[in-house]
Design a protein around this nucleic acid. Structure first.
Lengths: 222, 222
DNA sequence: TACCACCACTCCTCAGACAAGTAGAGAAGC
DNA sequence: GCTTCTCTACTTGTCTGAGGAGTGGTGGTA
């Protein structure tokens, strides 16, 4: 559908530089041409080049030192999530969530502490109160799902979850706004059953509840 | 020992902003004051503020939109994988692999192309030939598991997998060296069964094979 | 040889100007 | 009353010109 959203020159310049770095034009530790050289080369102003460089510096690819120049400090860039998510289908995202969350739900059923359970029930209650705002509902929902992953007591799964769900916020809000319907009551019940399964230490049941809930979401979007 | 190296104003401004974000001054999704407001507030020029913002944007903390403003998209910079993995238990890693790979195996059974199948069988054959070197076996094994994830045709899962398995190489090699025993024949058979399930488009079977294989590994380590 | 002033080059910072995008207020037309 | 258009205020985006500040080399001097 090709959004009309045009990207700022600085972002384009950053992408261009990153491509040239990845292509091996400048080795690790090599010095880039000066800003005054780079600017006309990329066809943009000097301040734009500086912003592009800063952006890559924030990602750890470049390092600038006054009086010396700009240097390459990393070649790979952990394939930024934003880029991956832009290209990816929303269905693919749900599938990834199925993978992480069903396993997390099962582990949570085994390992949840009383404290986890409290947090879980509170998150559920908060989620129940959100019926108006799309953004607020998404935030409450995300917080609830996150508390399940936390209850699994597995830092890797937590990191995986935190790694890409925050970046989905806007997309989820848009989707929710698009389809203002059966999103509340049935969902809330499914969530409650999931919490109950975790409370009962029902490993199988927790995984199944989690899976079916997300599967419904996936089917609705596919 | 307090280096004399003075940091650029833009970096200081970025740190200052990040602190204020972390302190909760601006909630997730909230809009920051305009650059023209922020500049005198931080005591720097507008271009400097812009460079600070770009730096945080590169880290995924902020997002700018022309005409709208600057928004908080993450409350903290994502943690380094290496740091997470250093602290994490090897069991936690296996659990994360279970989450990703069983789901991937199921999807692969549905979506695998003839080409995927060829790659899968070749990776299996390569793995079969590796019986001596621990490092070579691990590499062949990783390649095999990766080809399953690739066959799932889900870029998110692939990215999750690639995100942390390469960093496990040394740890896996060490583990393998530690226990020089029943790691070959039974494993190889299990892998073959997994490939067969994917070839047969047996979704359930593929997931189950994958899970039980990794589960055995987990149990052996726990 | 050892020291020092100088210089060319780099990034750093600022200010000002204008372009471009967005949202909302208010007028105009139905 | 409702829709639609236009205008305005505010935002980030981009460019330019000007100096400041750090670094390393050059060449002169004792």
């Amino acid at each position: 559908m090709a959004q009309v959203r045009r990207t700022p020159l600085a972002d384009q310049a950053a992408d261009l530089l990153l491509d040239r770095i990845r292509s091996g034009e400048w080795a690790l530790g090599a010095k880039l041409p000066g800003e005054t050289t780079l600017a006309p080369q990329l066809g943009v102003g000097r301040s734009t080049v500086r912003e592009a460089i800063r952006q890559l510096a924030g990602r750890g690819v470049l390092t600038t030192r006054q009086g010396l120049g700009v240097f390459v400090t990393a070649l790979d860039v952990p394939e930024e999530w934003d880029a991956v998510l832009r290209r990816a289908d929303i269905v693919a995202v749900i599938e990834a969530r199925i993978a992480i969350e069903t396993e997390a739900a099962a582990l949570a059923a085994e390992r949840r502490t009383p404290g986890d359970l409290r947090a879980l029930r509170q998150a559920l209650a908060v989620r129940d109160r959100q019926r108006g705002e799309a953004a607020a509902l998404i935030d409450a929902d995300t917080a609830f799902h996150r508390s399940i992953v936390i209850a699994a007591h597995n830092p890797i799964l937590a990191e995986l979850f935190d790694g890409f769900t925050p970046r989905l916020r806007q997309a989820m809000i848009d989707v929710l706004r698009m389809r203002r319907d059966h999103t509340t009551d049935a969902d809330q019940e499914a969530h409650a059953r999931l919490v109950q399964a975790i409370a009962d230490r029902d490993t199988e049941g927790a995984a199944q509840q989690s899976r079916s809930h997300l599967q419904t979401m996936k089917n609705a979007l596919a």
